[in-house]
Structure formats: C-alpha cells, structure tokens
Design a protein around this nucleic acid. Structure first.
Length: 263
DNA sequence: CTTCTGACA
DNA sequence: TGTCAGCA
C-alpha cells in the first residue's frame, strides 16, 4: 500500500472539502506529491503540513491569493506581525459579539412586556440616566426620512437604542440617546409612573399622552418634571406596523411611594 | 466506487 | 463554496 493518500482522504483528514483542495492547487499554493497514472492526485506528509499551514493562514483572514508569498517568502518577523494583527482583529470581533449579545439580552428582557396585556400603568424605579442630545424638532412636526438624513446627527445603531423624547415646554421636542457618562441632560433617580403603548397611527400617541395625564390625575400622582417618551423601535420587530413607546414621568417622592396602582 | 475537469449559481 | 454532469 502506498504511503500517499488520495484527495478525499486528505479532505477528511483535514476537515475540508475536496473541492477546496483542488482550488488551492489551482491557485498554486498546494501541489500534490505526484499524480498517479489514473490522474488521481496523491498527497504525502509534506502536503499535509502544507495544507495545515494554508488553513491556519486562512483562519487568520489571509486571502488565498496572498498565501503563496506568505508561505514561501515571509520572514519570521513578518509572520509575527501578521499574527499580531489578527490577534487585534479577534479582539475587536470579540467586542462586537459581546455588544451584540448584550443587545439580544436587552430585547429578550423587554419582549415579555410586549405581547400579553402589556399596556398597563405601573410605577417603576429608575436609576439616574444620562442623556445626550441627538436632534431637536418642533412639537407638531412629524419626522420623515429626509428629516432624519438632513437634521439628525448620524448615530451608529440608532434604531437599536432607546430614543428619549422630551418636550421642554417651549414647544421644542428634543430627542436624546442614553449614554454611560453624563451628557446634556440627566434623568434623576426615583419612582416613575410608566406605561407601554403600541402605536400604529400618529394621533394614537397624543391620545396616549392625554390618557397618561388623566390617569395620573385620577390616581393623585404628583408628576414632576417633563413627560418622557421612549421609543424602542427594535421591539417593533415582533409587532410589524406598530411602534413601541413607553411613557414615563417622575413622581413626587412623597405619598404613593409604596406599591404601584392598577388601572 | 472514486476521481477529474469544467461549468454554474 | 457547493453542486452537477459526463467521463475514465
């Protein structure tokens, strides 16, 4: 029995496809030990090691075209730089995945609130939140796509964030994004009256706001500070054609501090 | 049965 | 990158 192996054996050994091995040959980076009379490619240990190197470089993101020079004429120093570079790339990818994971957790924590009978009032505790101004608009005006492009600062992952809309009395609606560090505006820690609403038409939102104040009055909640309107557009993934809003307002930390009220 | 080549999405 | 045909 020959010491060399066939292409399918090599493929199984290295956990790659036969096609891929031929592709490497076509690109001139992996030649068979020899070609048998029946035109079969045959591979020995040299090719096994060589293929292992190729696969490793590929894992590091080295394009197949560059692998040839990489193996043949690269100094140990150049290779060290290459490894160092891909280590940095791995770190950034790791960071990206961690952030993605956090976001998925955030959705899963809020999603149970969505479907059942979510639209009920409750009192919830909020820690201090720091907001950074993103854009401003007149209270009556509607936000369209063009307005987004022209007037709003570009924010990566905008629609994965909780957009806080706050009306500051003077007829200006300011949209904020939540940030880690203190920014343009701070929401004090405390008890907030809150309600979730699913909105599919513009005027429903205004109704919801009126109902919010009516409810607060009926329950004798003393609301201080502005109404905070939080849009979580990423939750609309579960309910097409509906936007998810949470209405909140700080409650005077006096009476009503204990249990929340029910509608 | 396995592989090869070439072509295609 | 996988898949398929047609051939040896």
């Amino acid at each position: 029995m020959k010491s060399e192996i066939t292409i399918s054996e090599l493929a199984k050994l290295m956990n790659v496809s036969v096609h891929q091995i031929r592709y490497f040959e076509e690109k001139g980076i992996l030649q068979p030990a020899y070609v048998d009379r029946n035109q079969y490619r045959m591979y020995g240990m040299d090719q096994v090691y060589r293929l292992a190197h190729i696969l490793l470089l590929r894992k590091l993101g080295v394009p197949v075209q560059s692998i040839k020079e990489c193996i043949t004429s690269y100094s140990a120093d150049q290779l060290g730089q290459l490894l160092h570079r891909s280590l940095l790339e791995i770190d950034t990818e790791l960071l990206r995945l961690q952030e993605l994971r956090q976001f998925m957790n955030k959705i899963l924590q809020k999603q149970p609130n969505v479907s059942p009978q979510s639209e009920h009032y409750r009192v919830k505790r909020r820690d201090t939140a720091y907001l950074t101004r993103w854009m401003e608009m007149e209270s009556g005006s509607k936000l369209n796509a063009r307005g987004l492009v022209e007037r709003a600062g570009l924010v990566p992952d905008l629609f994965e964030s909780d957009i806080h809309c706050i009306e500051d009395g003077s007829g200006t609606l300011t949209l904020y994004l939540e940030t880690q560090a203190p920014g343009d505006y701070s929401l004090p820690e405390g008890e907030y009256l809150a309600v979730l609403r699913l909105i599919h038409e513009e005027d429903e939102l205004e109704q919801a706001i009126e109902q919010f104040y009516d409810y607060a009055a009926a329950q004798s909640f003393a609301l201080i500070g502005p109404l905070i309107l939080i849009e979580r557009s990423y939750l609309s993934l579960f309910t097409p054609d509906k936007l998810h809003y949470e209405l909140q307002a700080l409650i005077e930390p006096d009476e009503h501090s204990g249990k929340g009220a029910r509608p």
